[in-house]
Design a protein around this nucleic acid. Structure first.
Length: 578
RNA sequence: GCGCCUGUAGCUCAAUUGGAUAGAGCAACGGACUUCUAAUCCGUAGGUUACAGGUUCGAGUCCUGUCAGGCGUGCCA
């Protein structure tokens, strides 16, 4: 039993068929037989379309070709209960009950490891995500990034990769100077309540800020909180000249404001991530790339390719070579690199650290810039295939039926914490995982709140809670997991449907890893939960005949492993009662 | 203007990456608790997949064009 089952069903069928195809003239030698799970139950458990793909090449019609191939194969009745040619030329395979029952045993044996596979074994992967600079709290937009990245990291782990989760950030440069100036202006306001104020923004949108507030400053109230904390800790003497405008303030005076802001904002970001179950392995400061010389080395290497030139005091990358309209600045005339250069240096660093796969999660606003980075790596001789960029579309904030572009600077964002406060951590994760990264999300907090109680996340979790309750109750009447139990009494439609769903779990994880589309896994788990709820409704355990009760109890345990492992990958909690 | 993403049921979204009769949730309607939890189950209704062509055994999916929305097109990140 165990031996036969160890062989993957697809691999078994492919071997049988491939052996026959190899003897037929006209079949390409590199042809690979493909399988899919049919959409409808009456179309069998697994289907192949090879006859339709090959019929023309071998000079016949699909159905005839299918019959011809099948007539020469005798499938192991222990695995396959039926084969038929259907529709335009599909070949539908039906699994034997024996195969299904053995499958349940397999699940129970693997337990918390059921679903794991070895595609990525021996390989290192890095998922770089969140990577928000410390300019403010994480927003709903960052949430999409965080949840997608975290789940992809989990999925890669389950297919065997050694996964590192990295957060890349930059706490220097103009952005941080403006942040420090913003905090300083709010601090000034606190120690000097009568300081001259100005209004920025128009009409009702406008807010009052001290004169020293910088152009493009950060308007969020968290800036005031940071200023207040700083005042509590350091007193009122951090400002030398109250009359200075933002850009008259010397760098040295800004230091304490900047440092406090970075510390407090990162603390806040960290708490938000923890709350969502996002845990990074490493944090990488862009600054490191300057101190270790990688930025300079990368530029020097790029120069040797002849694709770099100097003009107008700046250093340019010849992006027109790669089909872009314009050339791209790598180093500004001020001597300061644009972010593209350290980005290239960073990816060189990643590849040099030995990662076989690097996943980058970017919002749609990076769509035009990452090709520069990849092209840079290519001309430097690196294998850019190892870098997989996942672009997710923007989360647009809806207020009163109108779309507002979220901006940390303008503080018209909804924080991730706000969202979790309103709908909870699990619904928040589900919200981002259920849709394709390519989907534009219109986000309305009021609507999200109103519909939170009906969120499908609970449908999955309820399945887990029910199973837990059964197991608890069943223990009271003396039932326990007995792997040697006879499962051949599992013949009810609900039981069979559930088993078939459970057996697809490993393939679903592999498919999710390949496509980097986590919503696939959610769709699948919904099917599993649906199959379980239906089973629960129609097939009782406690009070049934001993053999039936035992077999169903075992099946419930198998279902629990799938639901629990699946929810774990998605980062959703597994409640024992609801 | 050009590049990328999107357009699917009243609403929010899926669709195994080119497969068979396009599916879920919410909203609507009708049934099912004396049982291991009704946050569940069973059923009804809802569609010219934005539009027009094309490619092939087969198109929501690929190619061309049109329309609509989002993002980009910085010596900002």
């Amino acid at each position: 039993m165990g031996l036969i089952f160890k062989m993957n069903m697809k691999a078994y069928l492919a071997n049988q068929i491939q052996a026959v195809l190899a003897t037929i003239e006209g079949v390409p030698s590199d042809f690979e037989v493909q399988f899919q799970v049919p959409a409808r139950a009456d179309q069998g458990d697994l289907a192949s379309n090879f006859a339709m793909q090959l019929a023309k090449k071998v000079g016949t019609n699909p159905r005839a070709f299918a019959e011809r191939v099948l007539s020469t194969i005798e499938f192991d009745p222990d695995l396959i209960a039926g084969v038929e040619v259907a529709g335009p030329g599909f070949i539908n395979f039906r699994f034997s009950k024996n195969y299904l029952w053995n499958g349940v045993v397999e699940i129970l044996m693997k337990g918390v490891a059921y679903g794991r596979s070895t595609q990525g074994a021996g390989k290192k992967a890095m998922v770089e995500y969140v990577s928000a600079n410390p300019t403010g709290p994480l927003t709903v937009g960052h949430g999409r990034n965080a949840v997608l990245g975290d789940t992809m990291a989990n999925v890669l782990d389950w297919v065997g990769y050694d996964v590192t989760r990295e957060y890349y950030f930059n706490d220097a440069g103009r952005q941080m100077r403006v942040l420090a100036q913003s905090v300083r202006a709010r601090y000034l306001e606190l120690i000097w309540p009568d300081c001259p104020m100005k209004k920025i923004g128009e009409g009702e949108e406008g807010i009052w800020v001290p004169e020293a507030f910088p152009n493009g400053g950060y308007q969020g109230t968290y800036i005031i909180e940071i200023a207040a904390t700083l005042r509590e800790e350091k007193g009122d003497d951090l400002i030398e000249n109250r009359e200075w405008q933002a850009d008259e303030v010397p760098e040295a005076e800004l230091v304490p404001f900047k440092e406090k802001a970075i510390t407090l904002i990162f603390k806040d970001i960290d708490q938000t991530m923890r709350r969502m179950g996002v845990k990074m392995d490493t944090f990488f400061n862009e600054h490191t790339l300057y101190t270790n010389g990688n930025v300079e080395a990368t530029l020097a290497a790029l120069r040797k390719t002849g694709l770099v030139f100097d003009a107008d005091g700046a250093v340019w990358f010849k992006t027109s070579t790669f089909g872009k309209e314009k050339e791209t600045v790598l180093v500004k005339s001020s001597g300061e690199p644009t972010y593209r250069l350290p980005d290239m240096a960073y990816h060189v660093e990643k590849l040099n650290r030995g990662y076989d796969l690097c996943i980058d999660l970017f919002g749609a606003d990076h769509i035009d810039t990452y090709p520069d980075v990849l092209n840079g790596l290519k001309v430097l001789g690196y294998d850019a295939q190892k870098i997989q960029v996942v672009i997710y579309q923007f989360v647009t904030l809806m207020k009163g039926g109108e779309a507002v572009k979220m901006s940390t600077r303008k503080a018209n964002f909804v924080t991730l914490d706000d969202l979790m406060d309103e709908v909870g951590e699990d619904v928040t994760r589900y919200f981002f995982l259920a849709v394709s990264p390519n989907t534009h999300i219109n986000f309305d907090l009021d609507l999200a709140k109103a519909e939170a109680e009906k969120n499908p996340a609970f449908y999955l979790q309820y399945a887990h809670a029910r199973i837990h309750q059964i197991i608890t109750k069943a223990a009271e009447v003396g039932l326990s997991l007995k792997a040697e139990g006879d499962l051949s009494v599992l013949t009810h439609d609900r039981e069979i449907t559930l088993i078939k769903a459970l057996l697809q779990f490993p393939d679903e994880i592999i498919g999710t890893a390949k496509s980097l589309q986590p919503q696939r896994l959610i769709n699948y788990l919904r099917e599993v939960a649906e199959a379980f709820h239906a089973f629960y409704h129609d097939c009782r355990i406690i009070g049934e005949a001993e053999d039936v009760a035992q077999a169903r109890y075992n099946l419930a345990c198998a279902a629990q492993y799938v639901v629990r492992n699946g929810l774990g990958i998605l980062g959703l909690s597994t409640p024992e009662k609801m």
